[in-house]
């Protein structure tokens, strides 16, 4: 473009007679070269004064120091990259290791729970076996299949051996005491009403004093109640109640519960006595059914008194 402008000038044509676009382009080119000349000259001067005369050395030194410190502060070093990489890889490996430990711990916890459950089951079965071996009564083992979840109805459904003589009203016991009574039998399945059911009742006797009374299920509140005991009767917290054996159908002395509170009511002439069941009503899977005759003591009460 500049060549064209020069050609126009050489031809003697007036500069202002050129087409406007060409004039603008030529002017901008000239401005560019003019600026370039100025800045190149300035730069060469600066280079000369700096290299030859050392004019800018003090300023350069000061600024260079500041820039060095700023650069050091802002720019990450090799060490920083290495440390960061090492930190990331270390963190990653730690996270993976931690996950592995957590998984292992979960498995171990589950295994421990299984072992604990098995130990408890074995202990319970050993206790039942001991009871079975020293008992003069005929007994049959039953295994719980289902249990009701309702707080107002405490029943179990249990399976027993084929041809076992399980009948209505038979007592269900575990190694610690009375659990319930057979409510119905169909095939090898028996429905058991727990003594904590609000409709259950057991005729009992306080082991310490011989005082008789009827124990009822606590229903939704759980536990047991000894009702119709007149105020002034000799009942203390900690007294053990056992089956009375009245009627001859069931044996005497099966632990039913322990007195946990004795309260008098102003509106009633009877005590309100609460008991804790001796048996583990809701914990075990295996129980025994008393199916035989009734005579001697089944449980050793010496330790309970």
């Amino acid at each position: 473009m500049l060549g064209h402008a020069e050609a126009w000038l050489r031809a003697g044509v007036s500069f202002y007679a050129m087409p406007s676009a060409t004039v603008t382009s030529a002017r901008s080119k000239m401005q560019l070269y003019a600026s370039l000349s100025v800045y190149v000259g300035l730069a060469i001067c600066l280079i000369f004064f700096d290299l030859k005369k050392q004019t800018f050395s003090p300023i350069k030194e000061g600024i260079s120091n500041v820039a060095y410190f700023v650069g050091e502060a802002l720019s990450p070093s090799d060490d920083w990259f290495l440390q960061f990489g090492s930190h990331l890889s270390y963190k990653l490996s730690l996270t993976q290791e931690n996950e592995a430990y957590k998984q292992g711990q979960l498995l171990k916890d589950a295994q421990l729970q299984i072992i604990g459950s098995l130990e408890r089951q074995v202990e319970e079965l050993q206790a039942l076996l001991g009871l079975y071996q020293r008992s003069p009564y005929s007994m049959q083992a039953v295994t719980v299949i289902t249990a009701t979840d309702s707080p107002y109805e405490h029943t179990l459904m249990a399976r027993f051996a084929e041809n076992a003589p399980v009948d209505l009203g038979d007592y269900i016991i575990d190694a610690h005491g009375l659990v319930g009574q057979v409510l119905s039998v169909e095939g090898v399945i028996a429905v058991i009403r727990l003594i904590s059911d609000r409709r259950a009742s057991v005729h009992t006797q306080i082991l310490r004093t011989g005082l008789r009374g009827v124990v009822f299920g606590g229903g939704a509140r759980g536990g047991l109640k000894l009702k119709f005991v007149p105020e002034g009767a000799d009942v203390l917290v900690g007294d053990v109640l056992v089956t009375s054996g009245l009627g001859g159908q069931h044996p005497f002395g099966i632990p039913v519960g322990t007195v946990v509170s004795v309260d008098g009511e102003e509106t009633s002439t009877f005590y309100q006595i609460l008991l804790k069941p001796s048996a583990n009503l809701h914990a075990n899977e295996d129980f025994l059914v008393l199916t035989g005759a009734v005579r001697a003591d089944l449980f050793d009460h010496d330790q309970k008194e």
Binding site: Y39, A43, I44, I59, K60, I63, S64, A67, G71
Partner: peptide, 25 residues
């Protein structure tokens, strides 16, 4: 561009005007 070159020269401690000349060109 010239000033940027000066800044680079001062910060790197190089000869003043070198980068200015380079960037301008």
């Amino acid at each position: 561009v010239f000033l940027l070159g000066l800044f680079v020269d001062f910060s790197t401690g190089g000869a003043i005007g070198m980068h200015s000349l380079k960037y301008v060109l």
